[in-house]
Amino acid sequence: MRARIFAEFLLIALLASAALVGGCGPPEGDLGPLTYRLKWLFNVSVVGDLYAGAEGLFEAEGLQVTVKPGGPEKDAIKELELGHAQFGVASADQVIRALAKGSPVVVIAQIFQQNPLQWIYRPDRNRFETPADFRGKTLGVTFGGNDEAIMRALMATRGLSEQDATLFSVRYDYTPFLEGRVDLWPVYRNAQGVIIEDKLRRAGEAVAFFDPNAAGVRFVANSVITTRALLEQHPRTVQKFLKALLEGWRRAVDPAQAERVLAMIQLHDRDTALPLLRQQLDITRQMVRPTAETVIGRIDAAAWKQTEEIMLTQNLIPAAVNVASSLVSP
């Protein structure tokens, strides 16, 4: 009986291994349907990804790509390793944590040149010009999230510790900020930032945003990733994918295409009013292509290095991972 169970287990293990090995070595260009797992739900932050899918840019490159929304419980890096997706979007801190644990992930493009994560505040009650102004204030952070790492890095630039300010645990609902219990609240400037700003302006309140970039903390936002194996074994597929994707982003942030792009976003984001979507798109455009010379998808190696240093300083990774070696422009 035991021998039979052992034999069955061995057979299953062999079959699984064979399937795995078989899945690793098809000839170049024979990958079949591809899955691209985003970091978050369909909204303006993924407008270029949606555009590439909706306008048939992947098909034009001979690829069959399904763009799938992300969410709080989705992790593109894990999906890449498990073979559920071939391309994905992950935050820089996710990538660096994964590299620290031996994940074979590589970054092939950085869509946002400027991290959209900022902090909203009421300028009539507080003035936040530099991190020195944080002293004695209540600062919202998502413990465990990348905004916590950014906030701690900001505080460190002025030698502030947790004793100098109160860190408030942030969740999905903005009530503590709306009620004035928290002075600074983290938002994605191009998404929720616009919505909360609109809500408060309607209530007659002024708002402003604190941008970590302006204080010298350039923590990289989401990036496009794949596995090193896919990059090495199917470089042309990766190139085609990236070409289609970056073309999607180029067109999506082209002001001349704005109406077309807005109509497309409306199909996916029905809860946000058109004027707000327009504002969101304008801000997204500035973050993806801050200047006319900016190459869309450019990987900012210096910002990645700073991100790694921040994580190392805060003991979020046990040792340096040399992230530069995993930044690849195919």
């Binding site: 293990a13 699984a16 291994s17 795995l20 890096i77 894990k78 390793e81 498990l82 073979g83 944590r97 994964a98 644990k101 031996g102 994940s103 074979p104």
Partner: peptide, 15 residues
């Protein structure tokens, strides 16, 4: 651990 071994997964996916 068996899944990690069979699919050669990193510590990021399964410690």
């Amino acid at each position: 651990q068996a899944i990690k071994l069979v699919f050669a997964l990193s510590d990021y996916v399964i410690p």
